[in-house]
Write a protein that binds this DNA or RNA. Sequence first.
DNA 1: TTCGAAAGTTGAGTCATTGCACTTACGTGG
DNA 2: CCACGTAAGTGCAATGACTCAACTTTCGAA
Lengths: 197, 197
Amino acid sequence: MTEPTGRRERKKAQTRQSLADAALELFLDRGYDQVGVKDIADRADVSVTTLFKHFSGKEALVFDQDDDLEAELVAAVRERAPGQSVPQALREHILLKQTQLAVHAADPRFADFTRLVQETPALRDYAHRMWTRHEAALAGAIAEATDAPEDDVSCAALARFALEARSLVLRHPEPHRAADQVFALLEHGWAASHPSD
Amino acid sequence: MTEPTGRRERKKAQTRQSLADAALELFLDRGYDQVGVKDIADRADVSVTTLFKHFSGKEALVFDQDDDLEAELVAAVRERAPGQSVPQALREHILLKQTQLAVHAADPRFADFTRLVQETPALRDYAHRMWTRHEAALAGAIAEATDAPEDDVSCAALARFALEARSLVLRHPEPHRAADQVFALLEHGWAASHPSD
DNA sequence: TTCGAAAGTTGAGTCATTGCACTTACGTGG
DNA sequence: CCACGTAAGTGCAATGACTCAACTTTCGAA
């Protein structure tokens, strides 16, 4: 009664996938702005209306539904190794995600996809929004982990900064080294007021 | 041959001002999304095309041209009081700007305007983009002020975080106190690797 | 005074996105 | 196994932001 796919849901998923594939294909080929949603719908052989039933907008066509992203972020803080500081846990989690994505890089398309996103303002902004939308949840997790009040400003700041760190690190030629530096800043700043967390 | 206003430039400025006034008026009255650019153009008695000759988009209608914002930011770092750290200088500069804006608050409309911006996603995002666009320049200034390489990651991080701090601080009921906490984090983190800057 | 260029206009057109009134085809309860 | 509710998909029209390609008007500087 739960997942074992009915034909209906299979078709739905398939249509969705066709759209995503068509979009990526066309974007990589001609560039985001040179592709209309009509072109994408045509290539996936559905109507434009249908396209918008599956995706909330043009930008969403090339991003996965990241439903558990927030949960993982919160878990990284809550279930960090004993003795590990919150900033360190976040640094690792972000680098981990980065590496996991890098695995997908087996696909030669992935490098192109990344470049596309970075070079297209609409996509760059969208990705950034999708990522930073978890700030409140992360701030809450940090507050909880350190017995701070729910709305503590330092926690909100650490959350914001850690999330912002991602794009800072990604655009650097040596992400790992960059992450060390950026999080060192947060680490020391945080340690000054939170001795042992 | 330079500034002493010709009639031409006066008219241009006047048209621009009419548009900005009309836009603010209508936005405050009906809300951003309930106003079309046509409505604004009509009220200012110009064509829609003319509106877009003066402003790059609908959101730009309610923001000043902030050409010297970047220069002031850089100056705040470069000409900070002797012995003052970079993060401290930035904290003061941001709070100062905040206060300067508060002066304008003589106008009872200003509070409404601020609320409008914060409550309208399109405007909030636009304002944020306009503010964070100076990240590279600020990072450069910080690097210069601390004899770090032009593209040092820590400098970029401090620049990014300081700029992000603004919205963090503004949404807090006690901005001054919030700024103290947020910049304390940056201060300590920065001091750990930059002893005396 | 004349002439080029800037300010403005009109009107048509593109593009993303939404709403509405359909048809089609699953899947489930009887 | 079949009828019926409902979710998937369609076509079309509309809106709203923005652009483009001719114009016309009006300064201002040589």
